[in-house]
């Protein structure tokens, strides 16, 4: 079965991203397909590579990147929500005249249409938020 995942909250502040990760991992282990993980609202903050958690804590951003790499996941960050919150990829930083970008490996920035498409293409859309 094809799952779409929506993550609406940032890392550490809320459990939403942790729950979404555990769900995604369990679904993959059971042989399901993850069509896309879409990050919206403060959820876009799951994609900043500047995150430096204490060493004895989980690294939520890297954990997504690694799971993404391992399973070729489509990790998509909403562009409108990302711009509001200061999350940029290289192209977007250039376009906006910013001197840095901060998106982590394995994530890509795209439009809200990607969320709708995930709803259309997935058998189930599961929402994690506050």
């Amino acid at each position: 079965m094809k799952f779409g995942i929506l993550v609406n909250e940032g890392p550490y502040q809320h459990q939403a991203s942790d729950s979404a990760y555990q769900f995604t991992k369990a679904a993959l282990e059971k042989g399901h397909e993850i069509y896309r993980v879409f990050f919206y609202h403060d959820g876009v903050n799951n994609a900043t590579r500047l995150t430096v958690p204490p060493q004895d804590d989980r690294h939520i951003v890297n954990r997504w990147s690694e799971l993404g790499k391992q399973h070729n996941l489509d990790l998509v960050v909403c562009i409108a929500a990302a711009q509001r919150r200061g999350l940029l990829d290289e192209n977007e930083a250039k376009r906006q005249g910013k001197d840095a970008n901060n998106i982590a490996e394995g994530f890509r920035i795209s439009g809200l249409g990607q969320l709708i498409e995930a709803g259309i293409q997935s058998d189930r859309l599961v929402v994690f938020g506050d």
Partner: peptide
């Protein structure tokens, strides 16, 4: 979590 996936 696997049970959560099954339920979904």
């Amino acid at each position: 979590y696997a049970g959560f996936v099954d339920l979904a």
